[in-house]
Structures are given as C-alpha cells and as structure tokens.
Design a protein around this nucleic acid. Structure first.
Length: 414
RNA sequence: GCGGGAGUAGCUCAGCUGGUUAGAGCACCUGGUUGUGGUCCAGGGGGUCGCGGGUUCAAAUCCCGUCUCUCGCCCCA
C-alpha cells in the first residue's frame, strides 16, 4: 500500500511512544519552570524571510533543507526548521523588547528536508529555551545548567558529555578568523575539497571537519582561545567559574564552532556516542546579534534546543500507563448500569475502562488486556441486591460491596 | 545531494546455488470454560514475498529500475 505510507521522513507516533515523548517534554518543561521559564508557542510556519535572514544565505539549512512554498496569496512561507528565529520574531512582534530579561521555553515540531537517519526525521520535535536580554555569562551558566539538569532528570548524565567553547566577541572572532585563514591557506594543499570551499565561505567550519587530512591540519591550527581579547576571556572565565560552582562538568573543545555571524561567546553541545552519527542531543549558544539582524533593537540572547526523538531513544523506561479499573457487565442487560457506574467513578477521578461486548469471559479478557488493576463485576444478581463484585486482578481476590460504597472501597486502587 | 546494507504475516525473522499448495515464534480470533482474565490444551484467520519491468517452461529466489527503511558522508537536534 505505498500510497498509504506516511511521507518520507515522517511517521506516526502511537500511544506507547507518545508516553515517552510526553515524558521527555514534561521533564524539560518542569526543570525549565524551576529556572523561571514560561512556555511560548509560535506558529509552525513563518514568512520565509524570518529564517532566510537569520540563518544566513550560505547555511545548509537555508540553501537546501527548508520546506518552502508559496501560499495561495503568493507569500513565500517556510515550515520552521528551528525555533530560535521564530521566538526572536515573536519577541519583536509582541513588543517584548521592554520586558527583558525574558525566559522562554518551547516545544514542538520542526521540519527539515534532510536524508532521514536514525534519530533524524523530516518532521521532528524539539524542546528548547531562550534567555533573552541578559548580556552577562550568568545567563549562559543558567541555560547550560538547566540543560544538564534536564539530561540528568532523564537519566542520561553518564551518557552525555558537555563540550564547551567560546567564540569570543565580534572583535575576537574577526581577529581569529584572519589568523585561521592565514594558517589554512598556507596548508591548502593538504585540505579536502570541501574544506577549501569552507575556507572561503565559512572558515570556522573547517575546524570540525571529519576528513582525516583536514584533521591533521586542524590539529596544528591556532586556537580561538589565543585570539580572545581580555573582555571575551573574562566572559568565558566567569562562565566556567559559574559552572564549576554549580558542579556542571564540562570539557573545553576549541574546535566546537558555530558558523553563523550572530553567534558569539558561548557555544556548547551535549553529545553522546550512543546514537551513531547523531551525536548532538542538546546544543546551543549565545546569539547577541540575532534580534538586531532581524530588525529589532540590539538584544543579547542565549539558549539551546534539544532533539526530542533523540532523547526518547536514550531514555530507558518511562513506566507503564495508568492502570484502569474495568467495569464489567455480565451481559448486555447490565450495560446501562455499568455505564452509570463507570461515569460515577470517572467523575470521582478514577481511570475507568469498559468491556464493550460479549459474555463475561470476553469482557474479563479485555479488562486484563487493558492492564486493569481491578474489575467491578455487575451481574443480574448483584443489581437485584444493590451490590457489585470487585475483583483484584493481581491477587484474584473478590468481594461484594454495596453499590453506594464503591468509591470508598476502590480508593486503594486510585 | 553522495556511497554501503536491507525490504517475506500486525511484529521479529527463516526460506533465496530458480522447481509442488511460502514457513516459524510472538500477536490475533474461536473453542475447552454459556458468572470470571492471566497459565495450559485444541483449532482457526491472515501474505499482490515493497512496487514496476525483464530473463525463464517456471521467479520470494536471477537482472534492471523505483520507493521506503537503515548505516555512513554532508549538515545538524
């Protein structure tokens, strides 16, 4: 049935898997709340310009990975490939520039036209945070510590490492870029074809090339740390001091870079080797130039995004769904009474399932399949006497209970 | 966008040097048990062998194309 398959790179998430997804999202938001973040929801599509302008014309996301189309009114629309640009747009659109510092959490689907792989889909989900309007390193520390907390709460502490780097301020980055380009040019005969292109368009990217020849060249390359001016160095030192004080373990990786212009100072990634090539599970950095680039006032910002599907694959077990009580009529003759009892119990806050058809045995089977904690059995006999029979599905123990007392009696199964 | 591997029942897979009616386990349904689930026993349903084309007397099996998944590259969450 090829016509009935979901579109490549998309998939259906069934109830069991959605419990994992909700668990991940819930843990993320729960911890974000503790840091004072509130949830923002922005549209899943924006004017193409929102992404084109902020992500940079040369980035892969913009040049070949966006779902872009003209709507019926002729506007160019793009399904969001990430949400930082959307949040920045909302920040400006809603006049929030006067309400900084602003701490925003988000979650939801993102869209990128990429080759699907393990943990990589064309429609995927992210959770993320943006802390807008704080220029100092305490904001970076908070955001990183929050990321570490979320991963810890998901039970992943021993499977991820935090890699940290500083790109410095604009002055430092320009200085480093010059030094780096000089060095790379002098070794251009050893660089891969890819890297020669990057050298012209986005030289920092050469640093995280996986090509063996490139790596040798990069190993001897000047490090950004040496190009940081004193202000940038102080920023980074203060940040690492905060992280140490909060006991957030990190490893400085001078090759961790961000290609886009609006990034500065902090860049970080929590990575794992448990997902093959998809190593990054939660990554972010500081983007002081973004809001201004979008047409807003100069505004500092720092944040991260995490791939929900990747996290879902890493978390072990989220426990089973709530076990229901099953109201089981002996036959169709007792269905109306069963229905009343079920509604009464639901009203009282119980999780209640029903057996829909068949004889008592069939309905019991269904109750068992739904993992029922207990059954409320209702026969002709019981109705006549104003009682029900309850059966504990784990012990098999049964007893008769007055109909009016069932809520009390079942309280222990709540 | 580029390269490797794989697609057989709802799931995991066997069958593949071409040869009767394509199998197993799990799952599902029915009965044993018409007032009692799980376990057990007996039986049953379910497959255009991803799709299209080619070779052949004969194709799940060989060849080509295509789609999807998967691993890697690129990039990224």
């Amino acid at each position: 049935m090829p016509a009935l398959n979901p579109v490549r790179g998309t998939r259906d998430i069934l109830p069991d898997e959605n419990r994992r997804r909700r668990f991940v999202e819930h843990v993320a938001f729960d911890h974000a709340s503790r840091y004072g973040f509130g949830e923002i929801s922005t549209p899943v599509f924006e004017f193409t310009e929102v992404f084109a302008r902020t992500l940079g014309d040369s980035s892969d996301i913009v040049t070949k990975e966006m779902y872009t189309f003209a709507d019926r009114g002729g506007d160019s629309i793009t399904l969001r490939p990430e949400n930082t640009a959307g949040v920045a747009r909302a920040f400006i659109s809603n006049g929030l520039t006067q309400h900084v510092p602003l701490k925003l959490f988000y979650r939801g689907p993102m869209f990128r036209y990429e080759r699907p792989q393990k943990g990589r889909y064309r429609q995927f989900h992210q959770v993320g945070v943006e802390l807008i309007g704080v220029a100092g390193p305490l904001a970076d520390a908070e955001v990183i510590a929050l990321g570490a907390d979320v991963l810890a709460a998901l039970g992943l502490s021993d499977r991820v490492t935090l890699q940290l780097n500083s790109l410095g301020d604009g002055e430092s980055r320009v200085a480093y870029r010059d030094v780096l380009v000089d060095y790379l040019r002098s070794h251009r005969q050893s660089l891969s074809e890819e890297s020669l292109i990057r050298l012209e368009r986005n030289p920092l990217r050469v640093l995280d090339s996986k090509d063996e020849g490139d790596r040798k060249v990069v190993a001897g390359a000047p490090q950004i740390t040496d190009s940081l001016n004193s202000a940038s160095r102080a920023f980074f030192d203060t940040l690492t001091g905060f992280l140490e004080r909060a006991e957030v373990a990190y490893r400085v990786n001078p090759r961790l870079v961000r290609g886009l212009d609006y990034y500065c100072h902090t860049a970080f990634e929590f990575t794992t080797d448990a997902l093959g090539a998809q190593g990054a599970v939660l990554a972010g950095g500081r983007y002081d130039g973004l809001v201004k680039q979008m047409g807003g006032p100069p505004t500092a910002g720092t944040g991260w995004a995490a791939g929900v599907e990747r996290l879902m694959m890493l978390v072990d077990d989220v426990g089973r769904a709530a076990r229901p009580l099953a109201v089981v009529p002996q036959s169709d003759d007792q269905v109306s009474d069963a229905w009343s009892i079920a509604q009464r119990l639901r009203c009282a806050g119980f999780v209640v399932d029903l057996g829909y058809s068949g004889n008592l045995g069939k309905r019991m089977k269904r109750a068992n399949k739904s993992d029922a904690r207990a059954c409320i059995i209702l026969g002709e006999d019981e109705i006549a006497r104003g009682v029900v029979t309850t059966r504990d599905m784990d012990t098999g123990e049964q007893q008769e209970v007055m109909l009016k007392d069932i809520e009390d009696h079942l309280g222990r199964y709540r």
